[in-house]
Deep mutational scan, measured.
Amino acid sequence: MASQGTKRSYEQMETDGERQNATEIRASVGKMIDGIGRFYIQMCTELKLSDYEGRLIQNSLTIERMVLSAFDERRNKYLEEHPSAGKDPKKTGGPIYKRVDRKWMRELVLYDKEEIRRIWRQANNGDDATAGLTHMMIWHSNLNDTTYQRTRALVRTGMDPRMCSLMQGSTLPRRSGAAGAAVKGVGTMVMELIRMIKRGINDRNFWRGENGRKTRSAYERMCNILKGKFQTAAQRAMMDQVRESRNPGNAEIEDLIFLARSALILRGSVAHKSCLPACVYGPAVASGYDFEKEGYSLVGIDPFKLLQNSQVYSLIRPNENPAHKSQLVWMACNSAAFEDLRVLSFIRGTKVSPRGKLSTRGVQIASNENMDAMESSTLELRSRYWAIRTRSGGNTNQQRASAGQISVQPAFSVQRNLPFDKPTIMAAFTGNTEGRTSDMRAEIIRMMEGAKPEEMSFQGRGVFELSDERAANPIVPSFDMSNEGSYFFGDNAEEYDN
């Protein structure tokens, strides 16, 4: 993207840094990872977990959730003011799984939030270390993106479920800051804005008074975040219109849905970061690795190297396929839920299948599930090659597409044709070009129609051997075009429920 120079890199967003050079960025990201790792080690000690239990991804998720809940100030305040039966607002906890007599047992633990905050700050040299908290939120978000298709949420806001490739980060909490905003897809931002506008339509006082002023500035800020994701002048001009509207209503909703559809071809720039579970960072720190000293990046080879040398386990339900569970977590670790499966298959070195073909449910185990038949197995999170994460949407291309997802959002900077089903997408653009945004709409449609099938995206960008740390010898991959490109292809993934 041309304006790259004016933006802070995501590592800076990730670490609240002012302008830093590459070495400083690597050190501050490393410091953040160190903090998460030290916190995780301490929690495993508190909970008396064995090494194996500490490497269980379900335990990692519970521990991450506990610290996120302990620092969720708004919710904590709300819980104190609106006490609900049987919930102690000062405590947080969740299921911890232990191996007892050759069987997995679930144990519900409860801790004072104050105590968890103390352990977290102690692991982070006394700081609140917001960057580390956001990092864990993005890992949870990436896992949700890989596990669930947001059909219901899309339909509720009037969008087409086939636009799911635009929904990265749709389950990120509001408090995820600049680093969170960077990884949100165009569809996620559109959905947040539509929800806001709908509230304004239904509630006369939404934009009024002292609160209304705050609401208005939040609305304009979200519009600017979305505008910054678009790469064409016409899309940005249309966002200006939406932002400046005196009284946002149905016309703005129409414009936003139009823009979301246009992003299936004229893709937005959305950041991709490899955020790993805390149970990967903990053992690495415990083994003596100093992330701050060595430096770390979320968008280069580092996460690949770390996963190459990590042992992570997962509980497996009786009829689940461990290899499929591994694929789910591998995609989440690489922030690749909406990437082209052919690119992923090449990088991973084994075939990556669409969601609907995987015999696996989510990673988390519900409290009512029976533990008797639970097994555990090693997650295979290694890769054959590594590639640089991208934040450009890439230019655009036609490809055989599917009944489910009709476009992709690249996660890796790797040369390819970008699949999208042009006739299906263009069919949504018939007729409606009147109104105050008509010239911009016409211009956007013209650009979409001009998108050429034979153009290559990320020209000359390749993948790298894991021994090639400096990215000196790019390998331009070859793809098996007979395979499906979309992950949520004609899909039956479970729906995400809060």
Results as ranks from 00 to 15, higher is better:
417 N>F: 05
291 F>P: 04
482 S>Q: 02
342 R>D: 04
179 A>H: 05
101 D>F: 00
459 Q>S: 11
213 R>Q: 08
307 L>W: 01
256 L>G: 09
462 G>E: 14
394 G>I: 12
476 V>Y: 09
305 K>D: 02
493 A>R: 15
59 N>T: 12
378 T>P: 08
68 L>P: 09
236 R>Y: 01
112 D>W: 09
53 E>V: 06
392 S>V: 04
155 V>F: 09
353 S>M: 12
170 S>R: 07
53 E>L: 06
321 N>V: 14
263 A>I: 01
18 E>F: 09
66 M>W: 08
492 N>P: 00
387 A>S: 14
472 A>R: 08
133 L>E: 04
479 F>D: 01
67 V>C: 08
127 D>C: 05
351 K>A: 06
275 C>W: 06
211 N>I: 08
49 L>M: 12
333 C>S: 15
331 M>A: 08
279 C>Q: 05
220 E>D: 15
442 A>G: 12
100 V>M: 14
319 N>P: 01
240 D>R: 01
354 P>S: 04
261 R>L: 07
115 E>W: 06
37 G>D: 08
407 S>L: 09
418 L>S: 00
92 T>R: 06
491 D>H: 11
21 N>A: 03
453 P>K: 11
266 L>E: 07
401 A>E: 03
49 L>D: 08
464 F>N: 01
433 T>E: 11
308 Q>S: 03
422 K>T: 10
371 M>S: 08
280 V>A: 10
20 Q>T: 01
141 S>N: 04
141 S>A: 14
64 E>T: 08
42 Q>E: 09
424 T>F: 03
34 D>F: 13
475 I>V: 15
33 I>K: 02
230 F>I: 07
478 S>Y: 14
27 A>D: 00
341 L>Q: 08
72 D>G: 10
253 I>Q: 14
291 F>H: 11
427 A>D: 01
483 N>E: 01
244 E>S: 07
30 G>I: 02
39 F>T: 06
254 E>R: 07
494 E>A: 09
362 G>N: 08
290 D>L: 07
274 S>K: 04
427 A>S: 13
125 N>L: 14
377 S>Y: 05
297 S>P: 10
303 P>G: 05
210 E>F: 08
12 Q>E: 00
160 D>G: 06
159 M>Y: 02
88 D>Q: 05
257 I>C: 12
65 R>K: 14
176 S>T: 10
184 K>P: 07
200 G>Y: 07
245 S>M: 01
190 V>Q: 05
113 K>N: 08
103 K>D: 07
38 R>F: 06
218 A>M: 03
468 D>V: 02
47 L>M: 13
296 Y>I: 04
4 Q>M: 11
159 M>S: 05
62 T>L: 04
146 T>N: 13
362 G>L: 01
349 G>C: 04
333 C>I: 05
269 S>G: 11
128 D>E: 10
395 N>L: 01
230 F>D: 03
200 G>F: 09
182 A>T: 08
323 A>H: 15
458 F>K: 01
483 N>T: 04
203 D>P: 03
273 K>R: 09
346 F>V: 14
37 G>F: 09
328 L>F: 04
317 R>S: 07
300 G>R: 09
425 I>P: 00
210 E>G: 11
20 Q>W: 00
398 Q>Y: 12
341 L>T: 13
